[in-house]
Design a protein around this nucleic acid. Structure first.
Lengths: 193, 193
DNA sequence: ATTAATTTAGTACATTTGGTCTAAAATACA
DNA sequence: TGTATTTTAGACCAAATGTACTAAATTAAT
């Protein structure tokens, strides 16, 4: 219901009606919409965690990064309301907000580390300007946070698989112009298959 | 009120209270929140139009493009609710939705033309892959549509000028790795000043 | 100055919502 | 089996919202 109607258009009472239970019952388990959303967020985190464990870290750095992106996109798609109504949710749930910021910080550090690795492996070009890649990471952040919003507006008629594929491709292509020759070749191998 | 509280948290009655008029009076002029938002959108369009007229087209292509971005960001900042609640608004206003899609199409064409010009002027590198720049334009679209949402979450404590500057810089840097040597030099001249 | 049109305010109503309280039903447990 | 705990439902309430209708006030026009 959150995914299709948007968080602001779904009330506790509507959810309980859909579930066929009384609204008091739903409130008994989740005292309001915010705690319900927190529980759903916990589900997202757990899915992301088990994803992280399942990834084979023996593969090359770029491949690990890209499968991480692909799988991450798949997971969040099922909870797309969370990203589409992100600002609404963050505005009205301080606890979730600070938790989200913490996770974002980790994500930033992870990308920074990965990029350093990729530079060391001569897959990415070294920085020519100061903090050049920091900008790239911020670009990544905006697209990671809002690709689902963008898809809702511009790709309403596409199917989920296509949407996920096209936007994860969009994200990966942020690296594209920074690739070395060998990086370029690897990129092509990873993305055409 | 839309900017600070979010569209969904502001009612016709709250607006009329703030204005010191009766809610029936407000409804007399704008029959509901949607038509009110449409009117505000019209204001945005008019501001954008007069911006377009004011820009000196004698300057070089990149400079025209970049001042366009800067000024555009400044304009939309005043109506940031529109971008932050974009999906909510589009979901609930079919007319505005189709109008928005039309404008987006124009924006896409404009960028395509500009990029072709910049390639011809040897400021941007020619495409090495098929539709490579189409991806860039889509990246531009996501950031253009959602930089204000991102800023609301990650830069809540920054002042407007800094926010506008940092995110317009983020957008411009999408072009950065595609610049030729001369393009690079021009870019630096335009962005450091 | 009188009339017509526009603008404004007030009231009333049905609906929805979040919340609280109480009691019944179901379940677990000893 | 009897008791305690957990779960569920129902009723109730105050607040807010959109909407519709009526009448007064203001403005414009002849």
């Amino acid at each position: 219901m959150f995914n299709s109607k948007g968080v602001s258009n779904v009330s506790i009472r509507m959810i309980s009606r859909e579930l066929g239970i009384s609204h008091s019952n739903l409130i008994y388990h989740f005292k309001d919409k915010n705690t319900l959303i927190e529980a759903l967020h916990q589900q997202i985190l757990e899915a992301a965690l088990s994803l992280n464990e399942s990834i084979n870290k023996e593969e090359n750095t770029l491949k690990v990064l890209f499968t991480n992106i692909d799988k991450g996109f798949e997971i969040i798609y099922d909870y797309r309301f969370f990203m589409i109504d992100l600002n609404l949710i963050m505005r009205e749930n301080a606890r979730l907000y600070s938790k989200f910021l913490e996770i974002e910080e980790l994500r930033f550090i992870m990308y920074k580390k990965k990029i350093d690795e990729l530079i060391a492996e001569k897959i990415l070009k070294p920085e020519t300007h100061n903090n050049e890649y920091d900008k790239v990471i911020k670009q990544i952040r905006v697209i990671s946070d809002y690709w689902l919003s963008s898809a809702q507006i511009y790709d309403a008629n596409e199917n989920p698989e296509q949407i996920i594929k096209s936007y994860s491709s969009l994200l990966k292509h942020l690296f594209f112009p920074y690739l070395t020759k060998t990086g370029h070749q690897l990129f092509c191998e990873l993305t055409t298959r």
